[in-house]
């Protein structure tokens, strides 16, 4: 399954998605409740990546569903309901980030690599304990990585989520966030560096 898609509730996708969409487009109240209960959990999970605060996430979820309800007549089903709602959820989270009052961010500098005066390193980088193959089977480790991402300052975390998790292009990310392409690149690089430092503190060990 692509990481771009949220988990399609399989039974609904195979047997009832088209029927559900038809009921939504017909204005059936029960269908709207079914949609929220069926897809709300996955949309909440996506939104919480961007908005760790539960209250902000709930606001964004409501905004996402209202956008979806408004646009349901234009939904044609090519991408699947889950994928369509995923995109709407990301947009709602980004809109919430833009409109809410900004909190001061923790500086990222402490998590960036350090060098000697001559520009070389004094320590080797981390030797990773969990390999990417292993992590795929280890939910506890995956959870720890998600927590590390959550610790990144918001303006860096958002860029990393859009580029490395949503796999949006640099240009698309710049447009979504109102940043320059160069700024997106800089923030992505620093976000990866800072995440690497957080992960090395959690999993790594110095190379002997």
């Amino acid at each position: 399954m692509s990481i771009m898609s949220m988990p399609e509730p399989a039974a609904a996708r195979l047997t009832g998605e088209a029927a559900l969409v038809a009921r939504l487009q017909a204005g059936d109240d029960g269908a709207y409740e079914e949609l929220v209960r069926l897809h709300g959990p996955a949309m909440t999970a996506v939104i919480r990546r961007y908005l760790p605060s539960e209250s902000d996430a709930h606001d964004a979820l409501q905004d996402a569903f209202l956008s979806a309800f408004k646009a349901i007549d234009r939904f044609e089903g090519a991408a699947g309901l889950g994928t369509w709602l995923h995109r709407i959820a990301v947009n709602a989270a980004l809109m919430k980030l833009r409109t809410r009052r900004r909190k001061p961010e923790t500086p990222i500098e402490d998590l960036l690599p350090k060098f000697l005066e001559d520009g070389h390193r004094d320590l080797a980088g981390p030797a990773w304990t969990p390999t990417p193959d292993r992590i795929a089977e280890d939910e506890e480790t995956r959870h720890a990585v998600r927590e590390a991402i959550r610790q990144l300052p918001e303006s860096f975390r958002t860029v990393l989520l859009l580029r490395d998790i949503e796999e949006k292009s640099t240009e698309e990310t710049a447009e979504l966030l109102g940043l320059t392409v160069a700024n997106v690149k800089t923030r992505l690089h620093r976000a990866r560096q800072a995440l690497g430092e957080l992960l090395s503190r959690r999993f790594g060990k110095d190379v002997p």
Binding site: M1, I3, S5, M6, P7, A10, R49, P113, H120, R121, L123, A124, G125, P126, A127, W128, P130, T131, P132, I135, A136, E139, T141, R142, H143, V145, R146, I149, L160, D164, I165, R192, Q193, L195, G196, L199, S200, G204, V207
Partner: peptide
């Protein structure tokens, strides 16, 4: 040191991606 750093950088990207893959 830089080889190790480069590997860590690549692994970070992979771990980030895998951490958000859907577990059905």
């Amino acid at each position: 040191q830089c080889v190790s750093y480069l590997e860590g950088y690549k692994t970070t990207i992979q771990l980030a991606r895998q951490s958000h893959e859907t577990n059905p």
